[in-house]
Computed example of a mutant assay.
Amino acid sequence: MLTSRTALVVADEAPAGPPCAGQVLHEQTVPRHLVHRAAVSEVFLTDLRIVDDTTFSVGAQWPRDHSFYRLPSPHRHDPMLLAETIRQAALVIAHQVFGVPLDWKFMSHETNYQITTAGLALGARPADITLTVTCHDVKRRGAKVAGMGMDVTCHRDGRQIGSGSVRWSCVTAAAYQRLRAGVGDRVPPPGTPAPSAPPVSRGLVGRDRSRDVVLSPHDRRGSWLLRIDRRHPVLFDHPVDHVPGMVLQEAARQAAALLLGRPGLVPAALRFTFDRYVEFDSPVVVTPVRRAPATTGALGVGVEIEQDGRVAAQGLMDMRIVD
């Protein structure tokens, strides 16, 4: 059996070997293919260790600055780093522990997180993060795992700073091709120019670059159009045949800022469900509304994401100010 430290240096497209027990390390990232990333710079996970048959420790590190996951505040990490870390943790456990083949396709059905303001503090060094992940409701298709739920607690410097969960399923590459038959003809080719629709003003959504704005004005009052730039190096790290869930969550975050008129607010808690794939070839409407928050002192915003007259995804965020 390879140790976890050994597994990290295995060639990028080879199996990295099963994880072992022990305390997680934060020395280097896991192989990028295990978290479905093309750029090494977008890999936040550093280690995976076994606690018991259903519980695992995952190491991660959050950079002091990131090209996309960043806030106007110079003192805090972007809470969406936790959302991406949970996404990556689900993938590495699926592949390394449950043996899901690397060419199988994943579908996220539900995801959520919540994090404390103190947990977002920007220190003198990158933040070393440890996730404890408990797997439950494991679904199988024959001998293969076909999906499960995962509950997550997030620790930093020995203190719990957040939690979350994710529910996902997966299918073989052949089954995915059947499921998505005909979609390939609707996907813009690589190198497609940036969208012609103008972005909303970057300052209104807490961004300092227009290329990071994912919303455009819409004729319907109180709604915006999803602005898809498939050349974005983070949101579209590699070619895909549908709009990724992290893009939809970012659209919800920016729509909440527009609704509240307060771009300095951040989603300290987020709950999202995904009902269907969001395609590239028809308009996507993002509509935020005020909702009751789940936590005291926050401003609650619900967001619906519609395409072709049907809800494709929806979320609820607790927006807070961080200094």
Rank of each mutant, 00 (worst) to 15 (best):
S210E: 14
M246R: 01
M80W: 02
I305M: 03
V284R: 01
E13A: 10
T132R: 15
V10T: 11
A7H: 04
T46K: 13
G147P: 01
L48M: 13
L226W: 10
R211Y: 01
S41R: 13
F236M: 12
A257N: 14
L215N: 07
H95N: 06
S223A: 15
E42Q: 12
R276W: 07
P126K: 02
S57N: 14
P190H: 13
G123S: 08
G184T: 09
G315E: 03
D12L: 08
T116A: 13
G261A: 11
T296A: 14
K139C: 11
Q177H: 13
T172R: 12
M317D: 01
S163V: 10
F274I: 09
R32S: 13
V247Y: 07
L215K: 06
A118C: 00
G164I: 09
T296C: 07
L226G: 11
P263F: 05
E279W: 03
A121W: 01
Q307S: 02
A7I: 00
A268W: 03
S4H: 06
V100H: 08
W168V: 14
A269N: 07
P288F: 01
A124I: 00
I228Q: 11
D65Q: 10
M319I: 00
P15C: 05
F106E: 06
P199R: 08
G309E: 11
L248T: 08
L81P: 09
A292Q: 08
C154G: 04
D52Y: 12
A173T: 10
H66Y: 09
R253P: 09
R76T: 01
V234P: 09
V43W: 07
L270G: 11
H26L: 10
R87Q: 09
Q23R: 05
A121H: 04
G149V: 07
T46R: 12
A294P: 00
A146F: 02
Q28S: 11
L248S: 07
I86P: 03
V234M: 10
Y277C: 05
Q177W: 04
A313R: 00
A21P: 00
P101R: 12
T134D: 15
L81K: 04
G162F: 07
G191E: 14
A143Y: 04
R231K: 14
P72V: 03
A181N: 11
V183P: 03
L215C: 06
L82R: 03
E250K: 03
C20A: 10
L226S: 12
A38Y: 07
R271Y: 08
S169I: 08
H136L: 09
H33F: 04
I50A: 15
A21I: 00
L8C: 10
Q307T: 02
S165N: 15
Q61I: 05
K139V: 13
R159V: 05
G315T: 02
R37T: 12
Q160R: 15
A252W: 04
V43Y: 08
R202M: 13
Q254L: 06
V289Y: 01
G191A: 13
V138Y: 03
A312N: 01
G300Y: 01
V303A: 04
R231Y: 03
L225S: 15
T116G: 12
I161E: 15
V284N: 02
L260W: 04
G149W: 02
L82M: 14
V100R: 06
T132G: 14
V43A: 14
V35G: 09
G17K: 01
L102N: 07
P195I: 05
A312C: 10
G302Q: 06
A11R: 10
G302R: 05
